[in-house]
């Protein structure tokens, strides 16, 4: 699949990273178009978080480059929002939910009133009301806290939304709810999302395309198109033959590599 140059939101070119000479990522090449939902999937410890930190501009890669709408990402650029896996550590425990969501806006020049209004709108989008907005994040359940982190990213009106294993710390039911919430938000708000996960089902269920990583150092095994349409359902979609086939294919890509390297 090729993306029109104007629509390329993020591009990784020959991206590689080494810690003290030990290579963890090598020659990673992909593009993400505007309005796409892309999942990067790979086994635990393959360097997914390192990759995401490079994509966010939090870390400079030791090889290759990342660009956001043509601008090279050597530091965090405007318009990139990030949702971390560990909501209990990424939200400020001393600030109310509303303040957590509005702070990025205040830090980027929004007035108090408009930041608060935008925060409340974003919280409504993720299903949290004004009562929850007044609470401390740790007074909410895990799933609710991750909704706060998502609302914080939405309020920022990101060009690119990055998510690092965002549903790995919640239970299975909450996880399904949050997956469907993300699908709905991505479609309604035309978000461009890159989500990193080790869960193949999740990657296939959410994505327009899946980037499968494998090997040590990790490389892109293959980029798999996921033509499952816009309307997806946890039960119906996951029981189609198409889903099973895609799932098996991604699984094979990741597992195949392990046999090749070990």
């Amino acid at each position: 699949m090729t993306i029109a140059t104007d629509d390329i939101t993020l591009a990784a070119r020959g991206l590689g990273h080494a810690y003290n000479g030990r290579e963890v990522l090598s020659d990673i090449d992909f593009e993400v178009g505007r309005g796409e939902f892309v999942c990067i999937v790979g086994p635990s410890g393959v360097g997914k978080t390192t990759l995401l930190r490079c994509l966010a501009g939090l870390q400079r890669s030791t090889a290759g480059s990342v660009s956001l709408r043509g601008q090279e990402m050597t530091e965090p650029l405007p318009g990139v929002a990030l949702v971390f896996q560990d909501y209990s550590r990424s939200l400020m425990p001393w600030a109310s939910v509303a303040r957590n969501v509005e702070l990025p806006l205040r830090a980027n020049g929004a007035r108090r009133g408009e930041a608060r209004a935008a925060a409340l709108r974003a919280l409504t989008l993720v299903g949290l009301d004004e009562i929850a907005a007044q609470m401390y994040p740790w007074q909410l359940s895990g799933g609710m806290q991750q909704r706060v982190a998502i609302a914080r990213a939405l309020a920022y009106q990101p060009t690119l939304l990055l998510m690092d294993e965002p549903f790995a710390s919640v239970d299975a039911y909450t996880r399904a709810d949050l997956e469907d919430l993300m699908l709905r938000l991505q479609r309604d708000l035309h978000l461009t999302v890159i989500l990193v996960t080790h869960d193949i089902d999740e990657a296939v269920y959410l994505s327009d395309r899946v980037i499968a990583l494998n090997g040590r150092p990790a490389r892109v095994a293959e980029i798999v198109d996921v033509p499952l349409g816009a309307d997806r359902d946890q039960v119906a979609t996951k029981s189609t033959a198409e889903f099973a086939e895609l799932r098996a294919r991604v699984h094979g890509l990741i597992r195949g590599s392990r046999e090749a390297t070990s």
Binding site: L58, P76, V80, A81, L82, R89, M92, N108
Partner: peptide, 17 residues
């Protein structure tokens, strides 16, 4: 918490903020 500092960088907080 380092994650809070990462968040501050991604969301581009100024030094004072």
């Amino acid at each position: 918490e380092p994650l809070l500092l990462d968040g501050a960088r991604v969301f581009r907080y100024g030094r004072i903020r």
